[in-house]
């Protein structure tokens, strides 16, 4: 068991999959000579050369499209967006091509491609550089969507994403690349579409993913002091969503709060709340509450940013409310 940072776990996944399958290549801005904007791909250019660690000009629509065309022709591209903010200029490629072409060609073409990079709020980068596209990219059918929060999940899920025969959107976080955790020395895969109970508990289910996970875990600690035992479910995959794990937990606790680093309006958190009430309304003893970004563009100033992003304290309040606990 090694202790790795998330960036190192992602790098290990890329390295192992590139060694395993010569069709796998990494493409994006600064991934090669610069070793990656966040040093995820450090050392890979030296090991695999310029055909397989491809530095691109700043042209997201261009290289996302090249990745798509290469995947259709039998390669297995991993396309890195420096951050998903910049994927906006490639949305036609993502949504009209990547998410459509297998279905549109009636199965004649496959698109085994991964679009990965940081998503969600960074720290003090303001509104164009601190956005969460969880809902936006989970909305159209066609993608699988993964969001990781630990080194263990990062490695196991990225390896599965690279091997998946479908296009996968793989969300990381700028502020979490340095998060450390245990990663087994031996090879392992984590199946896409499996949630993980990060903390077992009996009173309230806290559903989260990605950057929401540390907030949810901290809120669970705070609630423990109030005598409330939270179960934290990290969905890890937004599409396909492991509803069974969510529902099983809610059947046990009868209360749920979603903690999500994303906007509240039409958010993925709202989708989860909807699915719970559609399927197991009778199990609920309280409405499903959410702790998300405030419904506002991200400001730069540190105090304002802190107010906008989810906080463990506010998550605690939501948890206590669904538990009808006096605050």
């Amino acid at each position: 068991m090694a202790i790795l940072q998330i960036r190192e776990a992602l790098r290990a996944a890329l390295d192992e999959e590139m060694a395993r399958d010569p069709r796998v290549f990494l493409m994006g801005e600064e991934v090669g000579h610069y070793d990656g904007a966040y040093k995820v791909s450090q050392g890979l250019l030296a090991k695999y050369g310029e055909m397989r660690v491809v530095d691109t000009p700043i042209c997201e629509a261009g290289f996302a499209g090249v990745g798509i065309g290469a995947a259709m022709a039998g390669l297995r591209p991993v396309v890195e967006f420096m951050t998903f903010n910049f994927s906006l200029v490639a949305f036609d490629q993502l949504i009209n091509n990547a998410a459509k072409l297998h279905h549109l060609s009636n199965g004649q073409f496959t698109l085994p491609i991964v679009f990965r990079g940081p998503n969600g709020a960074a720290h003090m980068l303001s509104s164009t550089h601190s956005q969460a596209f969880d809902a936006l990219l989970s909305h159209p059918p066609g993608f699988k969507v993964v969001s990781i929060a630990t080194p263990y999940d990062a490695k196991g899920l990225l390896k599965s994403a690279i091997r998946d025969p479908n296009p996968v959107v793989f969300f990381e976080s700028e502020v979490m690349y340095g998060v450390k955790g245990e990663v087994p020395d031996e090879e392992y895969l984590i199946p896409i579409g499996q949630a993980d109970v990060k903390r077992p508990g009996s009173d309230v289910t806290v559903i989260t993913w990605g950057q929401g996970l540390p907030v949810a875990l901290r809120a669970a600690e705070l609630c423990a002091e109030d005598g409330i035992d939270c179960e934290v479910v990290d969905v890890r995959t937004l599409r396909p969503l492991d509803e069974k794990t969510i529902f099983d937990s809610v059947r046990k606790t009868h209360r749920a709060v979603v903690v999500a680093h994303e906007w509240p309006t039409c958010g993925f958190s709202g989708h989860i709340a909807t699915r719970i009430q559609e399927e197991i309304l009778d199990e609920l003893d309280a409405p499903v509450l959410r702790e998300t970004y405030e419904d506002v563009n991200m400001p730069y100033a540190e105090n304002l940013e802190k107010l906008v992003i989810p906080s463990a304290e506010r998550a605690r309040e939501a948890i206590l409310r669904v538990a009808y606990h006096r605050i």
């Binding site: 261009g62 499209g65 290469a70 259709m72 022709a73 039998g74 036609d92 490629q93």
Partner: peptide
């Protein structure tokens, strides 16, 4: 929208 995709097919031809 298909122009980069076509470049991607050609990229694969070069790669393979």
């Amino acid at each position: 929208g298909h122009v980069p995709v076509a470049a991607g097919h050609a990229f694969a031809s070069k790669y393979l």
